[in-house]
Design a protein around this nucleic acid. Structure first.
Length: 449
RNA sequence: GACCCCAUGGUCUAGCGGUUAGGACACCACCCUUUCACGGUGGUAGCCAGGGUUCGAGUCCCUGUGGGGUCGCCA
């Protein structure tokens, strides 16, 4: 039988980074086994759900490149879906649940009390084999010793998660349930329900959780918990995907950079680690830098423009060649696109914004005559290009008897306002003679005599 | 409180009875260099504790400790 796995998020308006990894592991397993990856939306809590909230999930998965074989095509619960086992929104499956509950009731496997319907749970330990955790033997908790039965339909008629989840997995033919470890303790309930419906339970694989750097549970409010922060800050999805794959799994050959294709080839459930992992933003950033440095030029430009636009820089008001030239000087220099506005914003501003420390270091009394002299040399240059800019600057430094760096710093700060930035000669060529000389003049005016 | 899972440097991990415990991120130093970043070289830092089993334990067993999770008419 072909493998069928599913990712079944609840539309809460955001996609948790841990949920994204759960989706990734499901997707990887499906691809590795040549099976089907199903997306199901668990939107039983209608009041809190919306089409926009579903779109957040859909967009997040699409951004990561995790295409689903079956499931919704839009955020509209009544809209088009792909696949034969729908509907793929729980809000559209009321009848399915009602029929199943009727069946349980008629076989006395469930009963009504206080208006709610409760499932008759067995009063003994459950043993099951988890593909990742191994054999799990779960005894009854003290509460369950008193009353192991649990509610499957609320008194207001709404079915409860445990019921809907099992019914859907059953009817959608799910063979492997790959989900967060927070469901491990719920699994006996689900197994009991499958047995009550007269079918064997699917295979289970509980993956460890992603924790905050301090080891606490990563909840909705924690920084970096939402996948969309990475989307919005201009991370490369390939980097996020690669980083996520290495949390709780390893290709075992000391490699960090792993193309998706190889991930699919190497991934398997028994290889998933059993312990929780902490989210390390620094490593994600490093990895993002690696991917950024090997991004195709046009893709790099696209993401740069996107980031700059979000920061308030409209690159459309500049000639295309200028924008391309400017962004080329940033290629391979950044770890994240979020650094770009501070790094290259000077290209797209009329005035230079000086960083106080930079100005203090560079605009000194001693540097004034040096910069003055260079300004004269540059003003008299015939060809304004990288080669000449560099040669002239080094020439002038020698002539003045100072180190190259002594000249580079004030020029850099004069033109960019910062001590860090793209290659000086390249950025000078890009901004052009007119702007460069104007900025040198502006700096000279600010320097103490 | 009961129940479940887990435990290799600060972080992610390799290891599956005999290793100088390997790699990556981060950090420190140096080199390269027009700054930063990249790259290169070197370095600091680890098997949670205590008992067993064994000729021999990071690897197997037990206990403790610590961390996480579950015990809802939330999902």
């Amino acid at each position: 039988m072909s493998v069928r796995v599913r990712f079944a998020p609840s539309p809460t308006g955001f996609l948790h980074i841990g949920g994204a990894r759960t989706a990734l592991f499901n997707w990887l397993y499906a691809r590795h086994m040549g099976g089907q990856f199903v997306l199901r939306i668990e939107d039983t809590d209608a009041a809190r759900n919306s089409q926009e909230a579903v779109d957040v999930i859909l967009n997040g998965l699409r951004w990561l490149g995790l295409a689903w074989d079956e499931g919704p095509m839009t955020g509209d619960a009544t809209g088009p879906c792909r696949g034969e086992r729908g509907p793929y929104f729980q809000s559209q499956r009321r009848e399915n649940y009602e029929k199943r509950v009727e069946a349980l009731l008629s076989h006395d496997l469930a009963y009504e009390r206080d208006g709610a319907i409760r499932f008759r749970m067995k009063r003994e330990a459950t043993v099951f084999e988890d593909l990742i955790v191994g054999e799990v033997r779960r005894e009854l908790t003290d509460r369950e010793e008193k009353d192991p039965d649990f509610v499957i339909v609320r008194s207001d008629g709404k079915p409860v998660f445990h019921l809907t989840n099992v019914v859907d997995d059953l009817e959608m033919g799910i063979t492997h349930v790959i989900r967060g470890e927070d469901h491990l303790s719920n699994t006996p309930k689900h197994i009991a329900l499958f047995e009550a419906f007269g079918v064997p339970a699917p295979h289970y694989a509980h993956i460890p959780l992603i924790l905050n750097p301090d080891g606490s549970k990563m909840s909705k409010r924690d920084a970096g918990a939402s996948l969309h922060t990475y989307l919005e800050e201009g991370y490369a999805p390939e980097a996020v995907l690669n980083y996520l794959s290495l949390l709780g799994w390893s290709p075992k050959d000391n490699r960090e950079m792993l193309p998706v294709k190889e991930m699919v080839d190497l991934f398997d459930l028994p290889g998933v680690l059993r312990h929780n992992a902490r989210f390390d933003l620094a490593k994600l950033q490093w990895m993002n830098g690696q991917y950024m440095a090997q991004l195709p030029g046009d893709r790099f430009h696209e993401l740069c423009v996107h980031t700059l636009a979000k920061a308030g820089y409209d690159t459309n008001t500049y000639p295309l060649e200028y924008v391309k030239g400017a962004l080329d000087t940033c290629y391979g220099k950044l770890k994240t696109f979020a650094e770009l506005p501070a790094y290259a914003g000077f290209y797209f501003r009329d005035t230079v914004e000086f960083e106080p420390e930079a100005e203090e270091k560079a605009f000194t009394k001693e540097n004034r005559p040096l910069l003055q002299r260079l300004r004269e040399v540059y003003a008299g240059m015939e060809k304004w290009d990288v080669g000449h800019l560099e040669a002239k600057l080094k020439n002038t430094a020698g002539e003045l008897g100072v180190k190259v760096g002594a000249l580079v710093l004030p020029v850099r700060v004069a033109c960019t306002g910062s001590r860090v930035g793209p290659s000086l000669y390249h950025l000078l060529e890009v901004i052009g003679r007119e702007v460069a000389l104007a900025r040198l003049d502006g700096a000279l005016a600010r320097m103490p005599v």
